[in-house]
Design a binder for these strands. Structure first.
Length: 489
RNA sequence: CGGGGCGUAGCGUAGCCCGGUAGCGCGCCUGCUUCGGGAGCAGGAGGUCGCUGGUUCAAAUCCAGUCGCCCCGACCA
């Protein structure tokens, strides 16, 4: 691979393409510990832009950031029966500290429900203390068997929102609200369309009453669970004695929600937009939106071209865009590297726009703009370069979103699919299949065993088919709900 | 945990069967010529051959053990 300039193509081996792209675009690297990765500056830069936008959205919906400890008493995890069953097999446990064996082992958080609701219980006495709307940005550890860069690693970065409410209805409203915050972010910022809906019991978060999810389709037609929002009911409130006195004077358990997205989103971004030349980052999330590649033949040209290139850099860097702030521009003035080599490199890294500028352009007061998404070149005058760049970036953001949406729709199947055909599809190219479901966990399990496809969500209304399916995909019994089936990451 | 594969320069590898000075490509450093889609030439740096032990005059190579990683199957954002 190292001596081969081209990536393995997606058609040949999607998985190999993904790994090579992540590694060679310098988003991440393997660490000395199995299953752990280092997020490199080009990958972390994307995460930082995601964080910034999500954090703003959380604040806009009334949440405050806080930080809770990494280490959790093992006994905490045991307090919620379903929760401990779900997470105990995946926890890393600290048994020694300061050279001595600990009386009680500490677990490294796989998620923070137990710690946070234990603390909420101390802070909440009255309905006047509610709702309590908290978010934390943190790392968590889950001891996974098989790992993949960004998609599943032993340690990952995420945010986890945790809220407490006085009523069940408020908690449900919050759960749905945050699911929509995620959806809006994924569609507008990541240009990654998602299907939202309810998880079945088998995929529900351990300890939740209801789990909602955003599911995105990757280019291999597999589903990526990109974000989840849980209505926890009173499960954790009961386990941690999180009670409050109501307006009428009675003592009641609070209603909780939790919701999270992780660095997995970076993997989703790669698998949604990448092509055989490498990464394609939607402009809103690109740490660098435009790279200037100067071209020269001799020292005289070099001086003239670089001088003007620097003034273009200064000009563009001063441009302020409404949603995304100042233009993020980089001048690639490295010596000893031919322009063509730079083009390939910046394309691999997914930078949205490239500005080529050479002696001929200098004399004509123009430059060449090249879009990363469709690689179309345009010659434009330097007089209005700021407007042109800004417009192009906006157009690209939209085009990438539409393209991803169209691809998903083209690979979705609705209406009256036979089970035999379903199996063929899942053995072949895969798809998002909307089909009837009888509601039986046995049927769901059988289909999973026979096809490796699972119910990703019971889609929200806007995603459901115009005509509700009448019978269950497998058993043929009357369908009680429409389900979205796909193989999943 | 079961099955398969691999550890040799930063990366990718040859050499191993048949023991005898560790080689190649990419990358890196220096210089000159180049530069509008992956540059050329010349010179140069870089290696405890995963680790431990054994056999041998001699081990990357043979033997034993050990560690690690990757891929495929049961859990998961």
């Amino acid at each position: 691979m190292a001596d081969d300039k081209k990536l393995t193509t997606r058609a040949v081996d999607f998985s190999a393409w993904y790994n090579e792209t992540v590694l060679r675009a310098e988003l991440a690297d393997y660490s000395p510990v199995r299953g752990c990765m280092v997020i490199r500056p080009r990958g972390y830069g994307i995460w930082e832009r995601m964080q910034r936008q999500l954090d703003t959205a959380f604040k806009d919906t009334g949440h405050q950031n806080a930080y809770f400890p990494l280490l959790i008493p093992e006994s905490f995890l045991r307090k919620e029966a379903e929760h401990v069953e779900g997470f105990a097999p995946q926890t890393a446990v600290v048994t020694h500290g300061g050279g001595k064996k600990l009386d009680e082992p500490l677990i490294i958080r796989p998620t923070s429900e137990t710690m946070i609701y234990a603390m909420f219980a101390k802070w909440v006495q009255s309905y006047r203390d509610l709702p309590l709307l908290i978010n934390q940005w943190a790392n968590v550890v889950r001891w996974e068997m098989r790992t993949r860069l960004f998609l599943r690693t032993l340690e990952f970065l995420w945010q986890e929102g945790h809220t407490a409410h006085a009523t069940e209805a408020e908690a449900e409203e919050e759960t749905r609200r945050m699911l929509n915050v995620y959806r809006d972010f994924m569609e507008a910022w990541m240009a990654m369309p998602v299907v939202t809906g309810l998880k079945t019991d088998s995929e529900r978060f351990a300890g939740a009453v209801r789990t909602y999810s955003c599911e995105a389709m990757m280019q291999d037609n597999k589903a990526l669970q990109a974000g989840t929002s849980h209505n926890l009911g009173q499960n954790f409130a009961r386990a941690f004695d999180l009670k409050f006195q109501s307006e009428s004077g009675s003592t009641e358990f609070a209603w909780n929600t939790s919701w999270g997205v992780s660095t997995r989103l970076v993997g989703g971004l790669v698998m949604t937009h990448g092509d055989d030349f490498g990464l394609r980052i939607p402009p809103f999330l690109a740490p660098i939106e435009l790279v200037i590649v100067p071209i020269w033949r001799n020292d005289e040209d070099r001086t003239r071209v670089l001088e003007t290139a620097r003034s273009i850099l200064a000009d563009l860097s001063g441009w302020e865009r409404r949603k995304t702030g100042k233009l993020r521009v980089h001048l690639d003035d490295r010596e000893g590297m031919k322009p063509g080599a730079k083009y390939y490199e910046w394309e691999l890294r997914g930078i949205p726009l490239r500005l080529e500028f050479g002696p001929r352009d200098l004399d004509a007061n123009q430059c060449v703009l090249v879009r990363r998404d469709n690689r179309v070149k345009r010659t434009v005058t330097l007089d209005s370069i700021g407007e042109d760049v800004s417009d192009l970036l906006s157009i690209m953001q939209t085009d990438m979103r539409v393209a991803a949406f169209d691809r998903r729709e083209a690979n979705s199947i609705r209406g009256g699919i036979t089970y035999d055909r379903f199996r063929e599809v899942m053995e072949g190219d895969g798809a998002f299949v909307y089909a009837g479901f009888c509601g039986s966990a046995t049927c769901e399990q059988t289909i999973k065993e026979e096809t490796k496809a699972t119910i990703r969500v019971l889609p929200d209304e806007e995603f459901r088919s115009a005509e509700a399916p009448e019978t269950c995909l497998r058993c043929g019994a009357k369908s009680v709900v429409e389900a979205l089936w796909a193989k999943a990451y």
